[in-house]
Amino acid sequence: MEVDNEGETEMASLELEDDDDLTLEQVLEMMEVAWLNEKFAPEILPHKREIVELLLGQITYLEERLQQLPSTDFKKGIHQMEIDRLRYLLTSYLRLRLEKIETFHKQILLEEEKRADENEALYLSPKELEFAQEFEQDLEAHLAANMNFCPNWQESTATERIVQPNLNSMVFLKAKKDVEGIAIDDGKAESSDLIDLASGSQVLINYNNVASLVKNGDVHLI
């Protein structure tokens, strides 16, 4: 019994946003970049649902096929290791997002509402959205039940308690293509310097200046 790349033929035909046919290898690379971005961006980024689901499906598929391999086959160990590496990548990615949702739940929910009103693509997956809403309800219920000893609690409205990510935090990034005219906000004055990035260059910079580039994929965080 061979574990082969039959899966690849069905996966390769799967089309992502760009209408490009992607190999699994490219999907994996996209996942790795998504992980790095999510890890270092202060705010939550758009969910890479297609990639996550595709790779999760691939894990299940491979594991089923691995069952059929005799345990003496040395290839089994290699395949198992790759599955473990992949699973680590995916779970770590999802955990990073959940951490952000727990910390910034209110702000994230407000932004998602705004996006829904304007018919923009949501950043959270349906399950994450459900988690965020339940988390918020439970937290509010908990606080309402336990914070009555605090005299000003009732008066302080929920909007005052919103935890916001620091979008001005400094991040390291690597440019994937040439990018021109990034404004540097050094915090001193309104006038700001412009810089150009050559493909492959690495810089330490304020996240706010490059957030849109991270989201459109011209640069990635490291």
């Binding site: 935090s169 390291f172 540097i184 260059s201 690495q202 330490l204 490291i222």
Partner: peptide
């Protein structure tokens, strides 16, 4: 300064100044 080019630094080196520098 609020901007620095860190070309030629490897990931392990960048990581060693995190989180203190940012």
């Amino acid at each position: 300064s609020m901007y620095a080019a860190v070309d030629n630094l490897t990931l392990m080196e960048i990581n060693s100044v995190r989180p203190i520098l940012p």
